[in-house]
Design a protein around this nucleic acid. Structure first.
Length: 357
DNA sequence: AACCCGTGGAG
DNA sequence: TCTCCAAGGGT
C-alpha cells in the first residue's frame, strides 16, 4: 500500500464516523431497523441509485417517495404504462434513465422471476446499471465487497493520496486506490460513508478538513492542496442553439402536443411541436394558422448547449388537423408532465393574458 | 475514447 | 450573472 495508508485504518475511521453521522434518507435502513433484522429492499436501493445518478439527494427525495408510492414493487413498476412513468420522471432530467428504468424492471420480472440478481456481475447485465450502480446495489443490498466509485469517491481518494493527475485520466488510479480501501465487512456502509463524507465534509469547494475523520492521514490536507483536488481537464464551452416552438390551442381548450422520438435529447418525453434546434433552423409549423410570436424567448441550458426558443402561438377551430402531434384534451394535460424546457415554453404563454381570447 | 444526455442549487 | 457540478450510463 502506497503512502503507508493501510486500508483497514481508513475504512475503520470512516465506518466509525458513519455510525454517528449517517444521513437519514427514505431509501436507507436506519440502525434501529437494522438491529431488528431488517435488510434493505433491493428494489428501493436500485431505484434510489438510478435517481441519484448525477443528481443531488435533495432533488431525488420527493421523486423517490412518489415512485415508491405509485409502484411499491418492481412488479408494479414493470406493469406501468410508459407515459405514466415518463410523466412521473418529468423534471428530474436525464430521461434515458427513466426509459432504462422501465426496461430494467421488465427484464427483472421477465428474466429473473421478479427478483434482482444478487451479484455485481449479474446486476451489470441489466439496462441502466453500470459499474457504479452495480457496485452500490451489490454492496448496500447484498453486502458484497464491491468497490463503489463515484464523484465523491474520486474526490476523497484524490485528496487522501494527493493525486494530481487530472480527471478523467486519473480514474483508473483512483479506482485502484478505492479498491484497496474497501473492507470485506460492511462494504455497503463503507460505500455510503465515503459518499456522505464527500457530500458533507470533503466537498468540492471549501472542504471542512478541520472536522474530517480522515484529517490525520490525508496527504492533500498535509500538503495544503485539498481545495484544488481533484484536478480536471478543462471542458468545452457551450454553443448557443436556436429554435421555434409552436403552442396550438383548439377552441375547446385542447393542446397540440407530441411525444418526442424514443432516443436522443428528451427522448420519449412530451413536448410542443417545433423546428430543429441549431444555428438557424427552418420554421416547421405543425399546421396552417395565423401565428402570434411571443415577445420573450424561452431560455434553457442543457448539458452541452444553450437554447433560445422563439414561441409562436395560434388558436384553431374544431376541424383543424396537424401534420405532427395530437390534440390533448384540456383536462388530460398537466404541465408537470413536461420536461423543464417545454414547461418554460408553456409558462411564457401563460404570461400573455389576452392570448387565448 | 469522446461525446451525448437535464436540472436546480451553491458560491 | 455565470460557472461548476451531483450517488453515471449508453453509444
Amino acid at each position: 500500500m502506497r503512502d503507508g495508508l493501510y486500508s483497514g485504518v481508513i475504512s475503520e475511521l470512516l465506518l466509525s464516523w458513519y455510525d454517528d453521522n449517517a444521513r437519514v434518507m427514505p431509501w436507507r435502513v436506519g440502525p434501529a431497523e437494522r438491529a431488528a433484522g431488517q435488510r434493505p429492499d433491493p428494489y428501493r436501493i436500485w431505484l434510489s441509485e438510478v435517481m441519484l445518478q448525477q443528481t443531488t439527494v435533495a432533488a431525488v427525495r420527493d421523486y423517490f417517495v412518489k415512485f415508491t408510492t405509485l409502484w411499491p414493487t418492481v412488479r408494479d413498476l414493470a406493469a406501468a404504462e410508459d407515459a405514466e412513468v415518463m410523466g412521473a420522471w418529468a423534471g428530474l432530467g436525464y430521461y434515458a434513465r427513466a426509459r432504462n428504468l422501465l426496461k430494467c424492471a421488465r427484464a427483472v420480472v421477465a428474466d429473473h422471476g421478479g427478483a434482482f440478481p444478487t451479484s455485481r456481475d449479474g446486476l451489470l447485465t441489466l439496462p441502466g446499471i453500470g459499474p457504479y450502480t452495480a457496485s452500490a446495489i451489490a454492496a448496500i443490498a447484498y453486502d458484497e465487497a464491491a468497490t463503489v466509485v463515484d464523484g465523491n469517491v474520486e474526490r476523497v481518494m484524490a485528496r487522501l493520496h494527493d493525486v494530481h493527475t487530472p480527471l478523467p485520466a486519473a480514474k483508473p488510479e483512483l479506482t485502484a486506490l478505492a479498491t484497496e480501501h474497501t473492507p470485506v465487512e460492511r462494504a455497503g456502509d463503507y460505500a455510503q460513508s465515503v459518499m456522505d463524507l464527500g457530500a458533507t465534509i470533503c466537498t468540492p469547494r471549501n472542504p471542512a478538513c478541520g472536522i474530517c475523520p480522515l484529517r490525520d492521514p490525508c496527504a492533500a490536507r498535509i500538503a495544503g492542496t485539498a481545495p484544488d483536488l481533484p484536478r480536471k481537464t478543462p471542458k468545452k464551452l457551450k454553443p448557443t442553439r436556436h429554435g421555434i416552438a409552436y403552442v396550438v390551442r383548439r377552441d375547446d381548450g385542447a393542446w397540440l402536443l407530441e411525444t418526442r422520438p424514443p432516443k436522443g435529447l428528451l427522448g420519449g418525453m412530451l413536448g410542443w411541436p417545433g423546428s430543429d434546434w441549431g444555428d438557424d433552423p427552418a420554421p416547421a409549423p405543425p399546421l396552417e394558422a395565423d401565428w402570434t410570436t411571443l415577445p420573450a424567448q424561452a431560455l434553457h441550458t442543457f448539458t452541452h448547449f444553450h437554447l433560445k426558443l422563439t414561441v409562436q402561438t395560434a388558436t384553431v377551430g374544431p376541424e383543424a388537423t396537424a401534420n405532427r402531434g395530437q390534440f390533448v384534451a384540456q383536462d388530460q394535460f398537466q404541465p408537470a408532465d413536461l420536461p423543464t424546457v417545454m414547461r418554460k415554453v408553456f409558462d411564457l404563454t401563460r404570461q400573455e393574458p389576452d392570448l387565448w381570447g
